[in-house]
């Protein structure tokens, strides 16, 4: 059977990808952050799974006002980096893992999660930047991916609890997948940030650190946060943090926190990362 080894949470700020793509990581603005990410990258080198389930959101790239599903699983063989307005990032295309993707869809649907499927969605910075954070700039990505897209930008959004429960369903699906493979799961986006309006630039370190503490030791506390509380306390776009609940729900109740990084600012965002290992 497949084994879920660990979960990672990370922000997905586009500027981070651009800093890597344009060779700016040693500049003063970025240096401290990328040094802080070294242990995360070392962990990924030592713990590369066969597949990463990456819970992400699309930014008006593939999904829009015309058609938006709450949860969409990528079941394709291959995914390309998206042109989201400035040309696609020059990063490798991403290999899917349709057997696992379909198994998750079938298993979760049987548990009454009505998931949409997509075979060819292009993946924007919400997906490719976390890959670059974990794996740097390889010629090919070292692990296949199963994209799980969550609607966190067009209200009504799924609740924080629903995201956690979806994670639990994904965890059960992985546990019942018959191949002997190792699987990782990532939650992306956040932490506190607001990108629009007169209040742009608001961040809330206290809220973020509490969220990270809860993720480690009291994950159900993070399922009781309303969208309004996220938006008020962590900025309009801080509500992306509900995607980390999907990651956390898939893991065991007791986990080992082996990495945490928190850094302000990355562009207009409070950057956060965490790695939680199943025991």
């Amino acid at each position: 059977m497949a084994k879920l080894i660990a979960g990672m949470g990370t922000s997905h700020v586009p500027g981070l990808g651009a800093a890597m793509d344009n060779g700016k990581t040693q500049e003063p603005y970025w240096k401290q952050l990328f040094e802080g990410l070294e242990p995360l990258r070392a962990w990924h080198r030592a713990n590369t799974p066969d597949v990463n389930i990456i819970v992400y959101n699309d930014h008006a790239t593939e999904f829009s006002l015309d058609s938006y599903s709450t949860f969409t699983v990528g079941v394709g063989e291959n995914f390309e980096p998206a042109d989201e307005g400035w040309g696609p990032r020059q990063v490798p295309s991403m290999s899917g893992y349709p057997d696992l993707a379909w198994h998750i869809v079938e298993s979760a649907m049987a548990e009454e999660f009505d998931l949409a499927v997509h075979a060819s969605m292009d993946l924007d910075h919400g997906f490719t930047v976390p890959l670059s954070i974990a794996y740097g700039q390889p010629k090919e990505w070292p692990a296949a991916v199963v994209p799980v897209c969550v609607n966190v930008i067009q209200h009504p959004l799924p609740t924080a609890l629903r995201c956690y429960k979806l994670g639990q369903a994904i965890g059960r699906a992985v546990a019942s997948f018959p191949e002997q493979i190792n699987v990782g799961i990532w939650g992306t986006g956040g932490l506190s940030h607001q990108l629009g309006g007169e209040r742009v630039g608001v961040v809330n370190p206290e809220f973020d650190q509490k969220f990270l503490d809860n993720l480690s030791r009291d994950p159900l506390a993070n399922t009781r946060i309303s969208h309004t509380e996220f938006m008020r306390e962590a900025g309009c776009e801080g509500v992306e943090m509900i995607m980390w609940n999907v990651m956390r729900g898939a893991l065991e109740d007791d986990v080992d926190e082996v990495f945490r990084l928190y850094h302000i600012p990355v562009s207009a965002t409070a950057y956060g990362a965490i790695i939680l290992e199943n025991k």
Binding site: I153, Q154, H155, P156, Q194, G196, G197, E198, R199, V200, H227, T228, M231, R232, C236
Partner: peptide, 14 residues
């Protein structure tokens, strides 16, 4: 909406 009193904030809703 209960988030209408958050200042300078424009969520995408209906």
């Amino acid at each position: 909406r209960d988030y209408d009193d958050i200042p300078g904030t424009y969520p995408l809703d209906s």
